[in-house]
Write a protein that binds this DNA or RNA. Structure first.
Length: 320
DNA sequence: GCCAGTCAAGTCCCG
DNA sequence: CGGGACTTGACTGGC
C-alpha cells in the first residue's frame, strides 16, 4: 500500500508566503474611493494566488504531491456589499499560472472551507451564503484548470438539538444544490457533532466520498472501534477518480484534546497505518499539524527505518 | 518591533 | 432570548 502525505495551506519553511492575507469589511469601508478599495482587494487576492504558486513550487521541490489550498484567497469575495465585484476576472492570469504549473508537476489539490459553510442549515440565507462560498471555490478550481470532482471537504453542519432531523435537513437541502457543486463536495466526520457512522449515513445515501478524520473520531464517537466502518468508508470512494483521503493529527494535550498539536505522533500514525495496510492500493493522508510542512517532514524522518516501511520520496512510502 | 486586542463567520453554551 | 465562547491567521494599535 502506498501512503502519500500532504499538508495544509501554508508553509512554516517558506517565508513571507501567506496565501491568506486579508482585508476586513471595516477596513474596506474606511476607504472613501470604492473603486480604489476594490483594487486593493484585488491586489491582496493576486498576492495570495502568487503565494500559492510559490507554495506549489516549494512542494514540488520537496517531492510533496498533496496540498490543501487556503480558502481565504479572496478577501470579502462573498460579502453582500460586494455582489457586483467580479473577483475572478482580474485573477485569470494568476490562476492560469497555477494551472500551467500543475500540468508540469501534478499534485492533488483540495480545499476545506471554514466551518461557516453549513449545508444542513434550516435557514435559507445561511444556506445561500454557504452556496456562494462554494461557487467561489468552484470558480477558483476552474480558473486553475483543476478537475473539480471531490475537491472540497466539508463538515455535515449543525446538530440543532436533534441530529437525526439535522441529517434529514442535509438530504433535503442537497436536493437544491446544483450538480457541479454536489460533485465537488466530500464530507468529513467532525470532532463535536457528527460521528463517522452519522457521516457515513449521508455519504452512502447521497453518493459522497467520506474523509475519515482519525483525531476527530477519537474525540467524537459512539464506539471508539472504527475498523468495522473502514470498508464502508473505502467504498464511498469507489466512484471517485481520486484515492481515499484521510486527515491525521495528534491532540495538543489531554486538556486541549481537540486542538491540533505541533507535530504528529509517529507511533499513533504507524499503528493506524498498520491497521489499514493492504485495504487499498493507495491512501492520501492530510497532515493537520500546527507546524504544517515541518510536521510532515518530521513524520517522514520518524518513519525512516521502521519495519515494513519503505520510503519512496520525501512525502511518500510503501507499507508492507 | 513586540504583544495584546480585534476581526470574520455560524453554532453552541450559559445565564 | 441575548450576549459571549469557540476557532484561525492576519492585521491593528499602543507602547
Amino acid at each position: 500500500m502506498i501512503v502519500k502525505l500532504g499538508y495544509v495551506a501554508m508553509s512554516v519553511e517558506l517565508q513571507n508566503a501567506s496565501p491568506s492575507q486579508t482585508m476586513t469589511f471595516a477596513q474596506f469601508s474606511k476607504i472613501k474611493d470604492r473603486e480604489a478599495a476594490i483594487r486593493k482587494l484585488e491586489r491582496i487576492a493576486e498576492s495570495n494566488i502568487d503565494n500559492c504558486l510559490r507554495l506549489l513550487k516549494h512542494n514540488a521541490g520537496n517531492q510533496i504531491h498533496f496540498f490543501r489550498l487556503s480558502s481565504r484567497l479572496i478577501p470579502l469575495a462573498n460579502h453582500e456589499e460586494l455582489l457586483d465585484w467580479d473577483y475572478i476576472k482580474p485573477l485569470k492570469e494568476s490562476l492560469k499560472k497555477i494551472g500551467d504549473y500543475l500540468n508540469q508537476y501534478p499534485m492533488r489539490i483540495d480545499f476545506h472551507p471554514d466551518h461557516f459553510v453549513v449545508l444542513n442549515t434550516p435557514n435559507k440565507d445561511i444556506l445561500s451564503n454557504a452556496l456562494k462560498t462554494l461557487v467561489m471555490h468552484l470558480k477558483l478550481l476552474r480558473g486553475m484548470k483543476i478537475d473539480t470532482e471531490h475537491r472540497c471537504v466539508l463538515h455535515v453542519g449543525g446538530g440543532y438539538d436533534d441530529k437525526e432531523k439535522a441529517l434529514e435537513q442535509f438530504i433535503y437541502n442537497w436536493g437544491y444544490i446544483q450538480p457541479a457543486i454536489q460533485k465537488m463536495i466530500i464530507l468529513e466526520n467532525d470532532d463535536t457533532t457528527f460521528t463517522v457512522k452519522e457521516t457515513l449515513y449521508l455519504c452512502e445515501k447521497l453518493g459522497i466520498p467520506m474523509v475519515f478524520d482519525y483525531h476527530h473520531h477519537l474525540a467524537n464517537h459512539e464506539e471508539v472501534e472504527w475498523q468495522g466502518d473502514w470498508e464502508r468508508i473505502v467504498a464511498t470512494w469507489k466512484t471517485s477518480p481520486l484515492p481515499v483521503k484521510m486527515h491525521i493529527s495528534s491532540p495538543r494535550s489531554d486538556k486541549e484534546y481537540r486542538a491540533h498539536a505541533d507535530f504528529v505522533d509517529p507511533e499513533m500514525f504507524l499503528k493506524f497505518i498498520n491497521k489499514i495496510k493492504g485495504s487499498v492500493p493507495e491512501v492520501h493522508c492530510m497532515i493537520e499539524a500546527k507546524q504544517k510542512d515541518a510536521a510532515l517532514f518530521r513524520l517522514m524522518k520518524d518513519l525512516q527505518g521502521r519495519t515494513g516501511i519503505k520510503l519512496i520520496d520525501q512525502s511518500s512510502f510503501v507499507v508492507e
